[in-house]
């Protein structure tokens, strides 16, 4: 129990520091005033100031004072206003599930298939399966997410043309004005490409590490002992090998979650999903400090939660960690 409590305290501290840093960076690098300058007819300075003050982004107020106001709101569950004087909370609520779907599916599918492929590759080292997936993962890891997404889009349009009907949709969450089962199928058709473009990288990433880790375990003494006491190869692998080999992946899970969130920004903007990533890009481009900070907070919590989960998972799988 002490282990978890300690990790949680550290977790909270890091979230606070990361968000503070995020807010201060955004507040000093982004310039909301820019949005109102150069308009025709010109906006009077007083109007600009009063709008900016109202949304707590006036650069004439000290940064720390603005930060104080922002934190005061966040503690009460109010993330402030966007540059367009709308509620950040509303926007957050509308977008979070779009991203969550993508992130959860992306991380789980990536980890599960990656680990599976990695284990099989290790067991069948240098065989056809290992080579095929080895080379493919090299190529996928060398391709940035946005290029994977574009190429998938290319491929989908080609398939659709060949089939004569739309199997894959390349824009949006679902087609409007349908409901029930039709809507479900339609959403799935929309979901395949974005999820795939986010997952492929994860699969390649995990499979390479899992293969290496599994190869180490396959050559280890304790697996030989397990065979020596009479277990079959399969039993030894599943009972004693896999558990040890999967352990290091937990750490990678935490690291790769940050990458996944960045990847989601590309996927969402390419496939026209109005999620958190797309919002982030838009917010930076419109100097929307409060929205940027809300997304930074969201990201910090997610990444650290993934790290926390990885720690707990490691402790559950590896009794040695719990003693420390």
């Amino acid at each position: 129990m002490g282990f978890i409590a300690k990790r949680f305290a550290n977790f909270l501290l890091l979230v606070i520091i990361a968000t503070t840093a995020g807010y201060l960076l955004a507040a000093s690098a982004l310039n909301p005033r820019e949005n109102f300058l150069g308009r025709n007819p010109p906006v009077p300075e007083n109007t600009i100031n009063s709008i900016l003050t109202q949304v707590n982004m006036n650069d004439q107020d000290p940064v720390l004072q603005r930060y104080g106001t922002w934190v005061g709101g966040v503690v009460k569950g109010d993330l402030g206003k966007t540059i367009f004087s709308e509620s950040v909370n509303e926007e957050f609520k509308n977008r979070i599930w779009v991203s969550f779907r993508l992130l959860i599916l992306g991380s789980i599918l990536g980890a599960v298939f990656g680990v599976l492929i990695g284990v099989i590759s290790a067991v069948r080292q240098y065989k056809f399966f290992d080579r095929t997936f080895g080379y493919s993962s090299y190529i996928i890891l060398s391709t940035p997410v946005f290029l994977i997404a574009i190429l998938l889009k290319f491929f989908a349009v080609f398939i659709n043309e060949k089939l004569g009907f739309t199997l894959f949709y390349t824009v949006g969450l679902n087609t409007p004005e349908i409901s029930g089962f039709e809507l479900f199928v339609n959403s799935l058709q929309h979901m395949i490409l974005p999820t795939l473009s986010l997952t492929l990288g994860g699969i390649a990433f995990y499979s390479r590490w899992q293969r290496n880790s599994m190869l180490d375990v396959l050559g280890s003494d304790h697996l030989r002992t397990a065979r020596a006491k009479g277990l079959t190869k399969r039993q030894a692998l599943f009972k004693h090998g896999l558990r040890v080999a999967v352990l290091p992946m937990a750490t990678f899970f935490a690291y790769s979650f940050g990458l996944l969130i960045a990847g989601a920004a590309f996927t969402e903007s390419i496939f026209g999903w109005y999620g958190m990533g797309e919002w982030f890009i838009r917010a930076v481009n419109t100097n929307d400090i409060n929205s940027v900070s809300a997304i930074v907070l969201f990201t910090a919590i997610l990444v650290l939660f993934a790290g926390f989960l990885a720690d707990v998972l490691t402790a559950a799988l590896d009794p040695r960690v719990r003693i420390r």
């Binding site: 990361a18 940050g258 990201t299």
Partner: peptide
Amino acid sequence: VDLLLVLPSFLILAILSRW
């Protein structure tokens, strides 16, 4: 190191892109 790993570098760099 842990702190810098919390926020994806992509996020920070995008925010700082103006600079």
